[in-house]
Design a protein around this nucleic acid. Sequence first.
DNA 1: CCGGATCCAAAGGGATACTG
DNA 2: CAGTATCCCTTTGGATCCGG
Lengths: 149, 149
Amino acid sequence: MRRATPDPMIEARRRGPIPKDVDPTIEVLVNDIIAKVADKWTMLILEALDEHGTLRFTQLGKAVGRISQKMLTQTVRQMERDGLVRRTVHPVIPPHVDYTLTPLGESLGAAFCGVWIWAETHHAEIERARRAFAAAGEASDVSACIETP
Amino acid sequence: MRRATPDPMIEARRRGPIPKDVDPTIEVLVNDIIAKVADKWTMLILEALDEHGTLRFTQLGKAVGRISQKMLTQTVRQMERDGLVRRTVHPVIPPHVDYTLTPLGESLGAAFCGVWIWAETHHAEIERARRAFAAAGEASDVSACIETP
DNA sequence: CCGGATCCAAAGGGATACTG
DNA sequence: CAGTATCCCTTTGGATCCGG
């Protein structure tokens, strides 16, 4: 299967210390963004909206999976503040609210796309690694894993 | 600037309900993986190792930024169990332990690469959205945001 | 230098009940 | 339907001390 990132610009960005065309203070800002965005629920909601386009509150919750309405509300509100989703309220009875990604949110979804694919592709490998680690831990002492240089 | 994911396979995966070539039970597994991997510290450690290649414990902590040694140890151990990093202990005094990504970890790093770039590209936009949201919240009531169909 | 162990504060997150 | 509010338990995560 073809890799998700054959882009030469991406390769250029990997490996090696921080390129000097980047403001040093930007590094912490970027880490802040990563930390904000790298939330379990944020990613799952982003994925759901990226797949389905537009969803109502309950539909969104169902699409995400096991999420309480508290976390759904909380996370979606945060994403709205960050400009990732647009929340539209139709003043009818019963209430009708739907959520959709903004262009910014869509761009983040596109950026995360490689990760969804990675998860689909490698989940078996992770489980294998986990079992291997567990087996190694039971079979032998930790000191057996060290190497003498 | 060119997008990170021009891959046709990626485009094919986005939009629309779950393709039927995917086992329905896989969806929850993938979400599990996402949830595991979408951890703040995991992503930052992954980024640090992806950039620097190999790092010792303290160096890694410094590269990540504001992380306590407890979380560093904990997260790095989890990543080791998941097969993302390889931990090598050199039995010398003082101890020398270094961490590096496994091929699996590198593939995840490559998958996340689009996200680093996104964060670098759009962090200003997020801050702007946040200020705009705050300004809107102060200026008017929430009911002013609803639209009548 | 690289952690493990312990204590403790704060945040995360579920369940339930209630409202417009 | 789409939340808000409350309670309460669990997890996270920092600080500190200690050991190999």
